[in-house]
Write a protein that binds this DNA or RNA. Structure first.
Length: 445
DNA sequence: AACTCCGTCAACCGCTTGCCT
DNA sequence: TAGGCAAGCGGTTGACGGAGT
């Protein structure tokens, strides 16, 4: 497509976005959704092309973005996925909720490539550099999987340093299965559902892997067994949750980052606590999750934890050693923490035949509807929040506005030592606070 | 202090894909 | 079926800041 046709007709701005532009775009999209991108700049009063707006939203303004440095687990995952997917950044990004393809691409080009080379691995082929240089393909001739096995060796050494999770589990690439382990410690780990047959038989065949990959990330969300994690599909929405009673002692892990690198203290800013005065007849499910990691929630729960409230099935994760980070249900009629999952829960109550299996998995019917709603949520969070709560969008907007005024501004109060700080100049500014608040309001739910 | 080099990251460009008419 | 339009995607560019000289 290149430059959009509209760009030629008008004198449009290029380059870095100003805070004012960010504000306009953010306000417009949170209020109306983006709809057709080409019409967004006009409606939002921006001298930009729709494409530029879309990019700005996706890569920076979107409320579900995770900021901050990549964890070792994330880096390992990117390397693993790159070994099988190559430069398909969007597909890699789909496995790292809250991360954009651009971000991952930049990380790869600026950092991971170098790291791999230092480890003696060719970042393109994922083979040892010596093999690549010598044109040695003995690995192939032996029927091994050089592009994977070398990676695994690297990761093995990395993981032994950084993560006590089962290496075999984490490196058994079952693409849909990267889920955070909720170990009750608020220190999220990535683990991967083991699929030994898959790894043993298929992982070395890239095409087959991709086939499986696509099937697992798309088709399964339309088939019968539909855990909510499947419903998410590749939906890259940030699913970090935090409430005052969920924060780990380590305050750093509760930070979100604005473009300025300033941390966002969710401890003081979780916005929907301010909305608890809104009574709502539909009980909502509150999640108390490790907040430092984005994840696709898996609602597979033990059968004995499923209970029924208000005529619907509720569940409670088995108690962990730290209730702060466990999942628990809440049959309170209070509106607490309107999150995508709350919405999800509401949809389930309203429109899905929700049932539980012996395994305790929640089977959701009508996945098409769910996915559509997720999509709609992404596009118009306000209206979806509103509809999920039987509220008028305008009312919800006002509530959010009100809640934001109620929140004490403690931004920047806690700076992690290791975080690169940027001066709030250029595109970042005081407005970044505004963004953070809106992000809090619409994003971390 | 001034300059250069290098790494990082946001944004742009252009190609591909998918949808609609 | 072809053409137009919009979105998605990946490669590339350029601005910026920090480190080194």
């Amino acid at each position: 497509m290149g430059r959009h046709s509209c760009c030629y007709k008008q004198k449009l701005r290029k380059g870095l976005w100003s805070p004012e532009e960010d504000e306009k775009l953010l306000r417009h999209i949170t209020k109306y959704g983006h709809g057709c991108w080409s019409s967004v700049p006009k409606q939002a009063g921006l001298q930009r092309c729709g494409k530029s707006c879309r990019l700005r939203w996706i890569n920076y303004l979107r409320p579900d973005l995770k900021r901050g440095t990549f964890s070792q687990e994330e880096e390992n995952l990117i390397i693993e996925l790159h070994a099988v997917l190559g430069n398909r950044w969007s597909q890699i990004a789909a496995q790292l909720p809250g991360r954009t393809d651009n971000e991952i691409k930049n990380l790869w080009n600026s950092c991971l490539k170098k790291k791999l080379r230092q480890k003696g691995i060719d970042p393109v082929t994922h083979k040892p550099l010596s093999e690549v240089e010598n044109g040695d393909d003995t690995g192939k001739s032996q029927g091994k999987a050089p592009e994977v096995s070398n990676e695994l060796n690297l990761l093995k050494s990395e993981s032994s340093k950084s993560d006590s999770a089962s290496y075999e589990q984490r490196t058994s690439i079952s693409p849909k299965a990267y889920l955070p382990e909720m170990d009750g410690s608020c220190s999220s780990k990535i683990y991967c559902r083991s699929d030994s047959n898959f790894v043993a038989n298929n992982c070395y065949n890239k095409d087959l892997f991709l086939d499986r990959f696509m099937n697992s990330s798309r088709q399964e969300s339309y088939t019968t067994s539909c855990q909510p994690s499947d419903l998410m599909g590749n939906f890259p929405i940030q699913m970090s949750y935090a409430t005052n009673d969920c924060l780990p002692n380590d305050s750093n892990s509760s930070h979100w980052f604005s473009q300025t690198g300033r941390p966002f203290d969710m401890n003081s800013e979780f916005p929907f606590n301010a909305a608890t005065s809104i009574n709502h007849p539909t009980p909502t499910t509150n999640l108390f999750l490790p907040n430092s990691f984005s994840y696709k929630p898996s609602l597979a729960v033990p059968s004995d934890s499923v209970s029924t409230a208000y005529g619907s099935h509720y569940w409670e994760a088995s108690a962990s050693n730290n209730s702060n980070s466990s999942i628990r249900s809440n049959s309170s009629t209070e509106l607490r923490g309107s999150s995508p999952l709350n919405i999800f829960s509401s949809w389930g109550l309203a429109e899905c035949s929700t049932s539980t299996t012996k395994e305790g998995q929640i089977h959701m019917m009508e996945n098409h509807t769910e996915e559509a709603k997720w999509d709609e949520y992404l596009h118009n969070p306000i209206s979806m929040l509103a509809s999920a709560q039987n509220l008028a969008p305008e009312y919800l907007c006002n509530e959010i506005k009100t809640s934001m005024h109620l929140v004490p501004d403690t931004l920047g109060a806690m700076l992690p030592h290791s975080t690169k700080q940027q001066e709030p100049s250029q595109t970042s500014s005081i407005f970044s606070k505004d963004i953070q608040k809106l992000r809090a309001a619409f994003g971390h739910m």
